[in-house]
Design a protein around this nucleic acid. Structure first.
Lengths: 204, 204
DNA sequence: CACTGAACTTACCCCTGGGTAAGATGGTCC
DNA sequence: GGACCATCTTACCCAGGGGTAAGTTCAGTG
């Protein structure tokens, strides 16, 4: 229409559409985001969305796919097996927080919007489950106490992951110093290890 | 219709409607829950919902109001100013987890559904903010380190609250021993205090 | 019993929004 | 130049669901 944007190759338009979709979905949630508003944001007509992505579900799915790939790639950057467990953990936490800080919409869409849908909530729980398992192994390996039961480790990991997500949310809504936040999270984790096995009230 | 349920006084019907609404909202989310399905769940016709509550928004608002009142009352039970800070904290955490365990739908509707709406998300953030402030004060009072800046305490509280919510979610989806979970959360908090002020990597 | 009002229903309105039919337009290759 | 395909649009369809108009039925009261 108005001479602004012109005919572009499919691959380019697809990325523009995903950009727009991620933005609108992250700001409004799945149901509240209309295909019309996404089309408007992408400065394209609605049938183009359907031509390239087929349906609202598939469009959202494509968003999830692209953003989670980016997320995983960002995490991989910080993954260096030569590091000691402890430095390894710190690096990964830092990369995580940096990713959230630099890709706030990705974070919201992946962990706060997808979770509210019927079709994609399992994606979030699966992903969260994998992270929790990793953390469980990490803290299990970092502890020598014997009395600790499995449930303790796993539940500790659940709590730690929850803490991480809460800090991530905080990052998206105000500026938090990433170093401070990283130290905080790693600190809680490491200090947390010391008491995992002691089931009764922890002595002071 | 089918002679099953009969004419009931308004006050009673209202509660039935809220029961049904909380159930359907908690299982499906705000947008996905239709007034028809809520009416069906309450075994009542749709105009009754509108007669007593006016609109979908107001119905949801009434749910939030009733459930959050219950929640606050449950918390008050565990509030005993004569206790030492530490026992106080433990009692409140335990009452919190017990409430979540016994009122899973309330928890979901208050903290997982309302947060996904435009109109009521501020309610959740406000409520979370108050809790976070309380926790901030609690850990500030429980620490004597001087180097710690304010942001550290607040961010620590954010992380701790996030951990609590994650454990609460876990409770709603599998059985977790409440004592274990309470000890875990209180343990993390208390142990966390020891390191809040030390900004650098914590010595092992 | 007749009268009133609260409790309740059937049947409908209509807008939002997912999805589509049909066609226009321009770039490229002979 | 003209054939062809990918790019792109206007204009529409229709189901789901929020909300309502208009009436029905029963419990109590004089």
């Amino acid at each position: 229409m108005a001479g602004g944007t012109k005919r572009l190759p499919r691959a380019v338009r697809e990325q523009q559409m995903l950009d727009a979709a991620v933005k609108v979905f992250s700001e409004n949630g799945y149901r509240e985001a209309s295909m019309d508003s996404i089309a408007a944001e992408a400065e394209i007509s609605k049938p183009m969305l359907y031509l390239y992505y087929g349906s609202k579900d598939e469009l959202f799915s494509a968003c999830i796919e692209r953003e989670s790939t980016r997320f995983i790639e960002a995490m991989s950057v910080g993954f260096d097996p030569s590091l000691r467990q402890r430095d390894q953990a710190r690096t990964v936490v830092k990369e995580f927080l940096r990713f959230v800080d630099e890709h706030r919409q990705s974070w919201k869409v992946l962990y706060r919007v997808a979770v509210g849908t019927q079709t994609f909530s399992h994606f979030v729980s699966d992903s969260r489950k994998r992270v929790t398992e990793m953390v469980t192994e990490l803290i299990r390996a970092g502890t020598t106490v014997e009395g600790a039961r499995d449930i303790d480790f796993e539940l500790t990991a659940v709590a730690l992951v929850g803490a991480g997500e809460a800090v991530a949310d905080r990052i998206t809504e105000g500026d938090v110093d990433l170093e401070t936040a990283t130290d905080l999270l790693v600190g809680i984790t490491w200090r947390g290890l010391k008491g995992v096995g002691t089931a009764d009230v922890v002595g002071d």
